[in-house]
Each structure stands twice: as structure tokens, then as C-alpha cells.
Amino acid sequence: MKFNIDQQMLTLSYISYTGYCLAGSDKHNARKIAPKIVEDLALELPTANKWRLVWGPAVSELFLSIFDDNMAYIVQHIEKPNCFAVVFRGTNPVSLSNWIDEDFFVFRKDPWMLGNKRIPGAKISHGTNLAMRKVKKLEAPSGVPGAGTTMLQFLRIQSETQNKPLEVYVTGHSLGGTLSATYGLFLKQCSGNQDIPVKERWDPTGKAKITVKAFAGATAGNRAFAEYSDKLLDKKTMNRFGNSLDLVPNAWSNETVKTWPDIFKPVAKPNWFFDLFIFQAKLASLLTDYTQPQASTPLLPGTLSEPCKTYFQQTIYQHVVAYPILLGLEGVLDPVKYFPILKDVLPCFHDPKGVEVSA
């Protein structure tokens, strides 16, 4: 059975959640996660005999966090040695600081930079900017592939040693989807650019091909940022995948946020907690002009899960469970393997008679 590149990238994105609940030091956790990623790459059908781990993983945590907040790794295509995939983990489900500091810190926006220069008018949320600063500094620790290098340093070495220009995919799910879109843009604007600090140069010839495969990512920046991104990454190279019933890729645009109260009807409606959350989201969308890159990209048509009777259950289902189904990986990529908590919070995993209905 053959699997297309979108299916492979989604699988790599889900594999990135391996070990999210570890509570040790960054280096210790990275060393424990690395062999599990190697195992998952071999066991998952879309990645088996196609990709191998060559950098990382590297993990980091925010101040006073118990669990890791960010993780990334890089794989190399086995048959095409000049082809790599940079993979970002999404929001850590058990890290409160990850949710507060990187996902929901959207009322303040920071300038988007090209080296030491600001791109006029282009801004991203402070939370995304914080996450970007962290992942740029991630360094593979001793005991894992690529030890002692950052992702950019590793890619620079590859660009100098491979016989062909690099083909680099940048991918991730949820927060990883947001980061893949922003880090992919960062790679593109630095490729072949000599007017930036030496530490940000990685592709001297500017011939590397960069393709973003962003799944379920929230909007990173404002309209000027999206317009700048669209100039560098067209629809062929900026591929966004969003479920029409997933709240996250619908954040934080005013046009989409206003649909949230009724998005899961007739199966579920928000309670008082989600009413407060929706109010915050509407306020953020009214006070800002957040816009997705390649905003005209159509969302994938989602379906409601009939067994999931609460707004919370539908939110989790649409953000996590739906994507393997929508990408044609139902029965192949098991979300419960990477999110075991789904068995406890979603009735569709313990109700054999549960069925889905069209939205």
C-alpha cells in the first residue's frame, strides 16, 4: 500500500507526541524519546522503510514547567538522502504553561523579523513568537543523532555536504502546525540570503526547496504577516490542512470565531466554560486582524461524532481524531497510540455502536 506525502507528514506529526508526559530533564527526556521515535518510524506503515531519525529529538520546557513544552526532530528520506522533514510537536496536553504561554497569548503581537530588521507591519502573536525563539535554540543533546547542533546548524551541514539541493518539509500538528508555518517561512527567507546574521544562514546557494505541511494550526500572525508569507511561500509550498469543525485552525479570525457557538449543533453546544472561552476568542479576533497564510485554502469537510455529546468531547475529537480519517488513514494511524487519554475522555472509543453523522 502506498502513502502520499501528506499522509507521511501527518504520521510524522503524530509520532512527535511520543513521550509528552515525561517529567525529567530536557536531555534525559530526549534520550528516552529518541529510540521510541525510531521504533514508531519503523512500525507506522506510512513511514516504514521511508524515513530515519537523523537529528534529535530535542525538547525544552518553560520556567517552572513540569513537562516539556516544545519538541522537534528531523528525519531523512531513506531513498532520497537530500530530502528531510523537520517535525514539530503540538501542544503538550498535560502542560498548562504550554497552553497559556504559547497557545493563548494572542492579545499581544510582536514584530516579525528578517535577521535584525523588521518586516513592515508584519506581526505574530507573542505566544507564537515565544515558541519560535525556543525552537530556534533547541540543540540535540549527547546520546541522540545530531548531538551538539541546532536544527539550523544541522541543515546547514547537510546543504554543504549533499550532492543535490535540499528538499525540506516542515510539518506539525496543532501548535506544531503553527510552528511549521512560521519556521518554514523563517527557513525560506533565510535561504540564500547573505544580508542576515551568520547564525541564521543555512542554504548559501538559495536552491533548497521548502514545503510546509501544517496540520490543525492556529493563525500565527496578522494580515501583513500573512501577505508577506504568501509572497515567499505560494499555495504549492504552503500546504495547510484544517478540519472545518476544528476550532484551532479557525482561530483567531473574526469571521470563523463567530461560528463557534453553533459549530457542533445539533450534537453539542457550549457550556458556561466554553462560553467564556468563546468570548475571549471573539475579543481577540475583534482587537486584532489575525489572518492565515494562503487564507483561501479550503478546509477539509469534517463530520460530527454522534457519541461525543459535549462541546469538550467534540472539540477534542475534531482536533485529534478527525485528521487521520480526513487524510485517509483511518485504521492505519491510531490517534489513541499517541494520545492514550482519548480512551478516557471520548465515548466513541468505548462505544462500539457509535457512528458519525454528517455536519
Rank of each mutant, 00 (worst) to 15 (best):
N98T: 15
W99Q: 11
W99G: 00
I100E: 10
I100C: 04
D101G: 01
F104P: 03
V106A: 12
P111H: 08
W112Y: 13
L114R: 13
L114I: 15
N116H: 08
K117P: 01
P120Q: 00
G121N: 06
A122Y: 02
K123A: 01
I124L: 12
H126R: 11
H126M: 11
G127F: 06
M132V: 02
M132G: 05
M132H: 09
K134E: 03
V135Y: 09
K136D: 04
K137M: 12
A140G: 04
S142K: 15
S142T: 12
V144G: 08
V144D: 04
G146V: 09
G146W: 05
T149F: 10
M151D: 03
M151K: 04
L152C: 00
L152M: 12
Q153G: 10
L155D: 05
R156G: 10
Q162S: 15
Q162I: 07
K164P: 00
K164F: 14
L166D: 05
V170Y: 02
T171R: 08
G172D: 02
G176N: 11
G176D: 05
S180C: 02
S180W: 02
S180Y: 07
A181H: 08
T182G: 05
G184T: 02
L187N: 06
S191F: 07
G192M: 12
N193Y: 02
D195C: 09
D195F: 11
P197F: 05
V198G: 06
K199N: 08
D203F: 07
T205Y: 13
K207T: 10
K209W: 00
I210M: 01
T211F: 14
A214G: 13
A216H: 10
G217Y: 10
T219Q: 06
G221V: 07
R223F: 03
A224T: 10
F225R: 03
E227D: 10
Y228F: 15
S229H: 14
S229Y: 11
D230L: 11
L232A: 14
L233D: 10
D234A: 12
K236F: 07
K236V: 00
